[in-house]
């Protein structure tokens, strides 16, 4: 076993990139779908890739394109972006305790590249040995780079995935969310299960009355609150 320093070595960077590459099935379909829809919406190639590079939030970009095509303007797109990306604020909030050892100068770049997998990756990583800094930066930058490159690929290739198989490839998203929950569940088995089940049911139920992105935030808040009442055996 290689002994890892606190400052982070090449091993942590490689691990971060390797884990980042696991999300190719997550970013590829979103970026391709976005690039194809952007063309339909009438965006130029430059605008299409610039949006990915400046925002890095595929779901909000897709939703925004839908709004634009329905005739919405600046204000409507901002509201959509806010609602869909609000969960990133929530993820950022949840990750803040893990950022304590890091220099303040790194926060803008970490904040800019935060994506949904981070919320599973970073807490799971702190259960292991090694530098969180090198891992955090490398895995997020790796995912950001993928997203921009896949947008370019989508612009040029149009459709790589046949339309009737897009639903299959898109399962990458829920599958990766499930995979990411496992280390968290193992570290807190009882409360974790209660949190996950409560959030699942609430998050689905709330969809009937609100935007699904907002539903996720409220569901996670309710789930985590309920979890506070569950006592773990090995109280950590």
């Amino acid at each position: 076993m290689v002994v890892k320093s606190n400052q982070g070595g090449i091993g942590d960077i490689i691990e971060g990139i390797r884990d980042g590459l696991l999300f190719i099935p997550l970013y590829l379909p979103i970026a391709l779908a976005y690039a194809v829809l952007a063309k339909i919406a009438g965006l130029s190639s430059l605008e299409t890739v610039l949006w990915s590079a400046a925002v890095f939030a595929g779901m909000s970009q897709l939703a925004s394109l839908n709004i634009l095509m329905l005739g919405g303007g600046f204000f409507e797109v901002m509201i959509t972006t806010l609602l869909v990306n609000l969960r990133h604020g929530f993820i950022s909030l949840s990750l803040a305790p893990y950022s304590r050892g890091l220099s303040r100068k790194l926060l803008p770049i970490i904040g800019f590249t935060i994506a949904t997998p981070s919320i599973g990756q970073i807490p799971a990583r702190t259960e292991k040995e090694g530098s969180i800094k090198a891992y955090w930066l490398s895995t997020q930058i790796c995912q950001y780079t993928q997203f921009v490159l896949f947008t370019l690929l989508g612009i040029w290739l149009g459709r790589m995935v046949p339309p009737d198989w897009k639903g299959v490839v898109s399962f990458a998203a829920p599958a990766s969310y499930i995979g990411l929950t496992m280390p968290l569940l193992v570290s807190k088995p009882k409360a974790g299960l209660v949190v996950a089940l409560t959030a699942s049911v609430t998050g689905l139920g709330l969809c009937f009355s609100m935007n699904p992105g907002l539903a996720v935030i409220i569901a996670a808040t309710i789930g985590a609150s309920v979890g506070l009442f569950i006592k773990e055996r090995d109280n950590v």
Partner: peptide, 16 residues
């Protein structure tokens, strides 16, 4: 509370 929120977000997203 914040140690539980990641689980909640991921579980809700997957279920949705």
């Amino acid at each position: 509370f914040l140690s539980y929120t990641p689980l909640g977000v991921l579980a809700a997203l997957a279920t949705q």
